[in-house]
Nucleic acid binder design. Structure first.
Ligand SMILES: [Zn+2]
Ligand SMILES: [Zn+2]
Ligand SMILES: [Zn+2]
Ligand SMILES: [Zn+2]
Lengths: 167, 167
DNA sequence: CCCTTGACTGTTACTGTATAACATAATTTA
DNA sequence: TAAATTATGTTATACAGTAACAGTCAAGGG
């Protein structure tokens, strides 16, 4: 039997897909991206990325930390925060401000500032392209004379699957 | 280059203005709005709103709490959080996710979900109308089949005054 | 090959943010 | 006034994030 055609990568978090393939692929790409940037994807860092990749949802630093401890890594907060900070700096993960939590990036290597779509029912988080939104923020800000350097865009609501499940 | 001057109330946080008048006005309107909604603006709640109104910047719950204690109110976290939650529910204050902090609303009573413009130099926070931005978020989300219920838009950068002060 | 250097990991200890749970007091409603 | 509701005060604890320092590991130069 053949696996279904891979969905457009933008709907990844909201669709059934071959997730082990999706993870494996992203880990491999992370390895390459880190190499290109002269950064080292060490065992802890790699494991943290794997943990984040297990679900398409955001995990708190302490959730990650607990898993690390179980795997024999250090189990004190700085261990998790340092690895998470590294992944965010390298563009391999994102921080979701609303949740005080972290999520693996699904489009690494494409320097971007996405909009996060957070499902309030199943907690899945997807990245939507932020281009048009940034332009709108620019417009609104320039009317007040404000110079935007970075924007945070997070939408709460229901993902496609949960719109049917919840009414 | 200069942008045309926007209506005064939108630049409130970023311009010199008669702030005691601005506070007094907002407190009075809060009283009315709460009344209309059948909510009680009790002494603690009112005091918290006054504290938030003192500056056009976001305050952490514990900053608010310290002030409350000095004024003879309870000085344990739930006292502050409950009052802050009330103000947010009633649309009299907003939570700024990026800062884990709260700010008095400058346009209460006009059910809205603004974009926050956060100055990284002077910490002032202004509310910009979110209309066009929400439309852009809607568009991006609907492409993924996501139903948006609420959006968080926060821009970091420099306010007009600080653009001159900082280079 | 050994030594120096810098980067990474581990640990302690601490600050800051937020909530659960329960007791008490005030207000509304019956 | 009594009961129900809403609000406040307090204790205790969970969750989020950082500073500082000690040990470890992986180059790179002699
Ligand atoms: Zn997947
Ligand atoms: Zn991404
Ligand atoms: Zn003012
Ligand atoms: Zn507002």
């Amino acid at each position: 039997m053949t696996t279904p055609a891979p969905p457009p990568d933008q709907t990844l978090a909201f669709q059934a897909h071959d997730h082990s393939h999706c993870c494996g692929d992203l880990i491999a790409r992370a390895q390459v991206i880190a190499g290109e940037r002269g950064a080292r994807l060490t065992p802890v860092r790699r494991r943290v990325l794997e943990i984040l990749l297990e679900h398409h949802r955001a995990l708190g630093a302490y959730e990650v930390l607990e898993r690390l401890g179980q795997d024999g890594f250090g189990n004190q907060p700085p261990v998790a925060y340092r690895a998470l900070d590294f992944l965010v700096e390298q563009g391999l993960a994102h921080r979701v401000a609303r949740l005080n939590a972290f999520i693996a990036c699904t489009h690494p290597g494409q320097d971007h500032s996405p909009a996060f779509l957070i499902c309030r029912n199943c907690q899945a988080v997807a990245e939507a392209p932020g281009g048009g939104i940034h332009a709108a923020v620019e417009t609104a800000a320039s009317l007040l004379g404000f110079a935007v350097e970075r924007t945070i865009i997070e939408a709460l609501g229901l993902c496609p699957a949960c719109q049917e499940a919840v009414e």
